[in-house]
Design a protein around this nucleic acid. Sequence first.
RNA 1: GCCAGAGUGGCGGAAUUGGCAGACGCGCCAGAUUCAAAAUCUGGUGACCUUACGGUCGUGGGGGUUCAAGUCCCCCCUCUGGCACCA
Length: 989
Amino acid sequence: MSEAEQTETGNEYPHRYNALMAQKLEGKWQDYWEREETFHAPNPGEEGFDPDRPKKFIMDMFPYPSGVGLHVGHPLGYIATDIYSRYQRMQGCNVLHPMGYDAFGLPAEQYAIQTGQHPRITTEANIATMKAQMRRLGLGHDPRRSVATTDVSFYRWTQWIFLQIFNSWYDEELDRARPISELIEELESGRIEPGDTESNPGGGKWQDLNGQERAAIINERRMAYVAEIPVNWCPGLGTVLANEEVTAEGRSERGNMPVYKRPLRQWMMRITSYCERLLDDLADLDWPEPIKLMQRNWIGRSEGAEVDFLGIDPAGGESAADGWIETRGSSGWPGGSPPEELAIRVFTTRPDTLYGATYMVLAPEHPLVDRLTAAEYDDSVPGPWRGQFPGQPAETSTPAEMVAAYKDYADSKTDIERQMEEKEKTGVFIGAWAINPVTEEKVPIFIADYVLMGYGTGAIMAVPAHDTRDFEFATQFEVPIIEVVKAPSGAEIAEGEAFTDHGTAVNSGLIDGLDTPAAKNKITGWLEENGLGSGTINYKLRDWLFSRQRYWGEPFPIIYDSDGAPIGLRDSDLPLELPEMEDYKPEVDEDPDSQPKPPLARAKDWATVSIDGKDYQRELNTMPNWAGSCWYYLRYLDPDNDERYAAEETEGYWMLSGKEEKARPESYDAGTSRIGGVDLYVGGAEHAVLHLLYSRFWHKLLFDLGHVSTPEPFHKLFNQGYVQAAAFTDERGIYVEASEVEEKDGSFFHDGKPVNREFGKMGKSLKNAVTPDEICSDFGADTLRLYEMYMGPLEASKPWNTRDIIGSHRFLQRFWRNLVDEESGELRVSSEPADGELQKKLHKTIAGVRADMDSLGFNTAIAKMIELNNALTGLDSIPAETAGSLVKMIAPFAPHLAEELWEKLGHSGSLAYEPFPEADASLLVEDQVEVAIQVMGKIRARISVPAGLDAEGLEEFARQDPAVVEALEGLTVRKVIAVPDSLVNFVAN
RNA sequence: GCCAGAGUGGCGGAAUUGGCAGACGCGCCAGAUUCAAAAUCUGGUGACCUUACGGUCGUGGGGGUUCAAGUCCCCCCUCUGGCACCA
């Protein structure tokens, strides 16, 4: 018989805490909290706001409102932040603990497509379902602050932020973003020159340019800009994707569809301007080191030098190159781009190996390839140079034919195919040579796909002796290998491998004999003096591709005039709402060469707009789903504000703290400014380089423009682990419903047939999902909350085991029984004071629980409360003071049960704001402690001694113990180690 | 391949700065209660040897430092996550 049935039949324990009672009182208190607005957190200036309390802003990474609802893995973090929030409220803090929904983007849209309903309808239904599930868990969010990124009143501000970004530029000198109006002022006053750029070839003066030219120069410098660059085109999803959304296998992170590199005109965000600050400010953040490291790696800073090699015109003979080095020596290093048509700029982290650069490699897409490719191969060109790649033409082909074939080959390969081949290098000698600027020797130029157009300059100097990839290529293509770095004596050098570590320069002219760092310095200095190179820093991070060809996203607040130049909408034109459409499906295609076709193009009436009598075309792309998640935490602060994304005072209070002076841009210094930000942000590690990097970038930009008070959004980040669960496969390898699997003698059976057990992330695909609703029905939300926290450390991934839940349920039941008579329902609480022993135990528990709470060690906090509770089971009645303290301690974990007991104890109202118990320090000291006595490291006795006894005293006690005397017999004591309150060790022989 | 994290009873997991390994829970065993069962309560439960007292071994494996190592150092194995020709 189940417990629930038992109560229904009304037997001898009508007042026992069981699933049925749990559900009854959980409903009661959830209604109470809602009715009494228990978890409403007032903003500064609002009724009930107390400026004297410290603030805590505690939040989770908000979820996608998916159609299948939550399983027990999802709320792990939500429960943790709820417990922490409740604890902080009881500590007297103003706690902001909201929850929202990341409802735009591919998952929501694809679910809508599957179900054939408009995404808004399915999204709203899904949000309602999730809200109900979270309410049932007793999560104390402030319901007024529940935002969804799809709300027009929300994305109106996403659009506003986009315009802020669009209307700003990065001032390299001041190292911060500034409004675009200030750029115009700078250009007009002549403090900044337009410069020789793509939009202003020849570097014309501002005064001499017409309006259209000026607009082009401005647009080129915006933090949000349109550019034609190679992007990740995913025809299967009908959209382009950010680098961060493409897996190592060259597939879309969502949907696992093939992704191809295609040059397309798209919106970009200049996140690369913030590389250095995104990197530097990590140091001040209280984040897990692995996440910081992932961001550092993703940003990928490397120090080195840019060096120019001069390509020799294969048609023009060698004389054109004469005097090049001398010319550079007098003209100096050209910053922007090399003045010579055929100069090939490379980036290297090892300028000290320049003397060993025996060839060059350009990416197949490098702009100089066609210009440099020779008409014929010289007869002296070795066979292996003429091309090594699958499907190559005959060796007698011309360089142009070879190059064309190789480009086709490289182009056709998806990244996944590249991986397959891995070991073998491919490439083609293009028949041309270049001059090494330090040796002045001719080196051959190859193209090969191991050089990537997207990194550095798309060209390298190859030093086969000291770079693994160059070594492989050189070996395979039979290019000379010259050693220029000698390994330090004692270092092991593997035969047949490149030596890539630091050493001493050899065969290297003016840097001979220098160790690597000194050699780098000296040669870089020499290059700079001679105008041939310059020390630089390179980053892996690319600008952020910001447009998507989807319906279900924020429309860009951008229109185009007849010139095709983008114009930002005025604030008064916001929000720009998504048009209602019959057909919002993306156009997907198997063909990698298909062109993106945004669904909004089909909204003909919406796509064109007339303003002041002039016709404009709207931007038809939408924003990626990261847009809303980049800043949603700010909207929680003041979700109904129509004037600003959040009131200034409110933002300053919750983000920085109400009392501190604000760190505004003019006083900003990365090293000393307060970081501020959300006090606790809990979520999965999978967002390490996506959401968390984008969000930091937007926040810094808003900070530079003076819209937020802190340079960082999230002060403390915590990654909760995954909930794993057993999954079972049958002999065909297909997953079977885990709930139907039976265990017999350590083996597992489904439908009588043996099945294999494995562990994986809980979810639909592994058929092992357990929903919180079923656990709430079987045990109650309080039991579920407790169990999820008791499973193990919050940061660890741990397996779900329904069988273990009963332990947490029994604890609550036993706790209840300690305070309430199960037959009569009468309190078992007495007004007698607790005896000394119990007092001590209670205060030790309080101290331990507090320490654990502060460090999010909820599993051990629970263990300590269980211990105390177990100590109470033998008592006839529980002293009221002890009972009250325990109820308050358990309240963050099992809030419904605690509220009910609090009420039974004679209090009115909620205990949500009751002070958390404090330990009396005087009760924490023991007067007797047990000390272990070891002889030669083995424990021979345990004795009880007065606490704090010094080493001599301890030794004295220890020597009197009969077991010790026996163990020491016949031995000479050489040394005695005595650690007060811990142990004594006799070293003897 | 590179980087990071982890490996402790049958299971989930405890163990400030090196200082009594296995807290707490599940499971299991025994007892109480019960006509009986469930529930509940009490006790036991790392392995091996021993009738017992007691002893030996034991934190993935191997070596080392130390009076003392789950914890520090070196090598290796396995698992998880991230990156992946980044010049």
